[in-house]
Design a protein around this nucleic acid. Structure first.
Lengths: 251, 251
DNA sequence: CCATATCGTGCAAAAACGTGCAGAGTCAAG
DNA sequence: CTTGACTCTGCACGTTTTTGCACGATATGG
């Protein structure tokens, strides 16, 4: 690979992801970090990017602003969202929970994917307005401000009328014995109703949720069909889950 | 995640939630509290936030916030929103339509006002999350992306179960003979249902909507209780409306 | 006043950095 | 074809930055 090609590649990464991590790029290209660092130094001196410890960021905030804002979520959640989005098949009816992780899922749905997204989160509904092919169904109800989702009897009733193919659930705790749990009773009810309305349920688990438990139990682990966990969690932390009879996916 | 991105993330949290709790952020990012505290200390020394016990608060309360929230909306809509917000009495149940003008209304509700806001606009629901005292009820349904509001049979049904004190309607046209009109048939139905569920209906009219008509009629002028018009419209343009038996308020 | 949470500091390990240098490859002059 | 100048790349080394932990000090809330 030519040096100039490499620099173009670096700028491409910057455009698409809003950031460059020297280490990971060097691994992708099979080159030493030194070479990447040299390139970054030169591109920085040309003013084409901004050098920072560990990699680089866009030179003019405005350019990479959009991409960067997408990535401003913690690494793990972005990865989980991207991995989960790949599980959605064209034509499916998908239920999306509220929360930052599912928001990443919504943002990573392929732009040419035709599907229907059912959600009780106004935030996710607004995010999907930009998506050209996805039909959005909003579940109404009393707004629970802490999580920014609709809850209550009206929500339960609306959910009962829906038959979805798959439900992506967010939780605040998942534990081999305690199962799935969350911090609010109303939300636990809603999540249970959403599970009942979907053929399959997948749980999105960022690192800090693993082996944690919250006050209100949603369901046992045996009731779910799969979990998608953040990359970089220790394999032995997952051992207790891999025997439970559902798929465990590393993002 | 790069260190500089982490600081951006912290400032983002501050913008969106108005505060930073060191402990919870460290859990979200999977880093130690020490690292977060160091970042906060540095950002504080740069004057970009105010360090407090347990986390951080905005450096200049509501300064950037206020500027940001106002810059996008034209003056006229801001004025209409502010004027309409003054019509809301404590304890009332208020229906807010979708649209940029009603969004301004929501943002100008006094922070100490206790009231219930019913809306079929996820955008408005999200905006009101910041309001400390307002209860929000979200009307669900199929999302009409052009206007970012819920429509359809499910929405109509949910609306039928509500009795509100006042409804603030947005329109795309108001005309002495043609009455109130909008550009989408589904939306016209929803607005009619919302009118039926409210004791009083006020219409928010920015300058370009005055004396205009759109394809789908919502109601005749005789059915509304008042209109709030943008400041600076000629008095003679309003003459035709002041004889119709409802109040005409200049913002 | 006490229990708890949070804070700041010092320290050590790890990661990232810059620099100098050597080997491999390229190119042009001899 | 050979030689020397030049460039590019990877490695080694010492330096700097970052990060997590331990400790004692300080603030908070009952």
């Amino acid at each position: 690979m030519l040096a100039s090609q490499r620099k173009e590649y670096l700028l491409g990464v910057l455009r698409e992801t809003g950031q460059i991590v020297a280490k990971s790029v060097s691994q992708e290209l099979g080159l030493s970090e030194d070479t990447i660092r040299r390139d970054l130094r030169e591109l920085a001196s040309e003013g084409r990017l901004q050098r920072v410890h560990g990699g680089a960021l866009p030179a003019s905030p405005a350019v990479g602003d959009f991409a960067a804002r997408q990535q401003l979520a913690p690494d793990g959640k972005v990865a989980i969202g991207r991995a989960a989005a790949k599980l959605v098949r064209p034509g499916q009816v998908v239920i999306l929970d509220g929360g930052t992780t599912t928001l990443q899922l919504a943002k990573h749905l392929p732009l040419d994917l035709k599907a229907t997204v059912v959600t009780h989160s106004p935030t996710i509904a607004v995010a999907l307005v930009e998506h050209p092919c996805v039909e959005v169904v909003l579940i109404g109800g009393r707004l629970f401000k802490h999580s920014v989702v609709a809850v209550g009897a009206a929500a339960i009733e609306a959910i009962a009328r829906i038959r979805a193919d798959v439900y992506f659930m967010g939780v605040t705790g998942i534990h081999p014995q305690a199962g799935l749990s969350t911090g609010d009773l109303e939300e636990a009810h809603i999540k249970r109703a959403l599970m009942a309305s979907a053929s399959e349920t997948y749980v999105l688990v960022s690192a800090e949720k693993l082996n944690a438990a919250s006050p209100y139990v949603i369901a046992a682990l045996t009731e779910i069909d799969g979990m998608i966990v953040a990359p970089g969690v220790a394999a032995k932390s997952l051992a207790a889950y891999e025997r439970k009879g559902f798929s465990v996916t590393r993002a």
